[in-house]
Write a protein that binds this DNA or RNA. Structure first.
Lengths: 225, 225
DNA sequence: CATATTTAATGACTAATGGTCATCAAATAA
DNA sequence: TTATTTGATGACCATTAGTCATTAAATATG
């Protein structure tokens, strides 16, 4: 009796089709100005049907965020799958996050939105947990890499990989956010090139994380000032 | 003919009274779930009147943000008005930003909201410019302080005060945001105390910014690891 | 003081929109 | 062939941002 299985597949693919439409609309309009009617139109379904597959507009938004997290994680996994040295992998993953920011701007923006207590209140716990789990997976990639660096003596052993991960992440994200929202302001009014700021912050962080022997060994790779 | 002046004053105080109500409602409910009707009720005015004073709900939200910026700036100005050494003033201002985060959480949350391109689109240019101007004032306090540190030989002369300002700001804000949204997660699941992370990031940044002589001189003040 | 004019405030109204539910149609089971 | 379950629909409801004709009060004018 493969009927239930077929139906389950059909249900899943419809869910995805709805999410395709939702993603397109959210990318164009953002959460508050996107309308469920427009999503339904684009998906060529009635509004009622949308609500058979998702509890609310906010839940759909989170489902799209979940996709973005998968995209980012794939980029990260690719970045560390090259079999290179740990220092190079750290640089790769930093580059991958920057590439994600540049190439997947829409997802990046949705992430910022997600990071507010207000939004958490408007969303089903179920979806929220899924997102947290996805976040955790990506996060563990970063922390494992730092831990590996510590084990190999490349990074100072007194550092806590998790704490350094948070700091690096917070710094990069904060600078990206400025790039996204106020790049023109920083450039035209303040004469600041934020890419330079980003490079500087990487230098500082690597400088404070890496052991002297590793710095010496990877000098060429790092081009530290 | 003091009538126009009196009327102007009355108009201004009504604007403030409306904003008092708006602030209360926004603090409680956030932008999307707050209603203009509720603001009007609380202000004991009709909804129509509200719209004689503010163009939109979003503009009111920005006006409250503007208040928050003033509060923060006052805290900063107080922090650097003690006539202490520049190193101490830098520590004071870092403390002031943390105090703002802890004591004025509602404003802090609104700030995050403000920092999205989506929101910028929904708001009058007039209000936006006011906010940018307010931001700039606060920003210049920080940058001036760093510049002063460079002039006095306390901070490395090769650093660009603006770029360092951005990095410090981005790091602190990113960590605060984690504290606000995911503190429990970091603590219970990851065993991370974000206050420690914050201290660590300050250490790193000061370590990389300060000259060796200054570090020696202000050892006691800094308690660098 | 009486009347005309300007200004401020109102709240009923509109349009938009998130979400629901009785109804229908198609697939599946009996 | 008929009964039952499942899936989809769109008219409908409630809420809410924003408008505007109307009213009331304040001010200016004669």
């Amino acid at each position: 009796m493969g009927i239930t299985e077929r139906k389950e597949r059909e249900r899943e693919s419809r869910r995805e089709a709805i999410l395709d439409a939702a993603q397109k609309v959210f990318f164009e309009k953002g959460l508050s100005t996107a309308t469920v009617d427009e999503i339904a139109d684009l998906a060529e379904l009635s509004k009622g049907t949308i609500y058979l597959y998702y509890r609310s507009k906010e839940d759909m938004y989170l489902a799209v965020i979940l996709r973005g997290e998968a995209v980012m994680r794939n980029m990260f996994e690719k970045a560390i799958s090259t079999g290179e040295s740990t220092v190079k992998l750290i640089l790769n993953i930093a580059e991958a996050y920057y590439a994600f920011f540049k190439e997947q701007r829409n997802y990046f923006r949705m992430f910022s939105f997600f990071e507010t207590p207000q939004f958490h209140k408007q969303v089903s716990e179920e979806m929220l947990n899924q997102c947290v789990a996805a976040d955790e997976k990506t996060w563990s990639i970063v922390v494992n890499l730092i831990s590996q660096g510590v084990r190999e003596g490349i990074l100072h052993s007194h550092i806590d990989p998790k704490q350094f991960g948070i700091i690096v992440w917070a710094t990069a994200t904060g600078i990206y956010r400025q790039m996204d929202t106020n790049s023109e302001y920083w450039h035209k009014v303040m004469g600041i090139n934020l890419e330079e700021t980003l490079r500087l912050s990487y230098s500082l962080l690597l400088e404070s994380m890496m052991t002297d022997t590793a710095k010496e060994e990877y000098k060429g790779l790092l081009r530290l000032q």
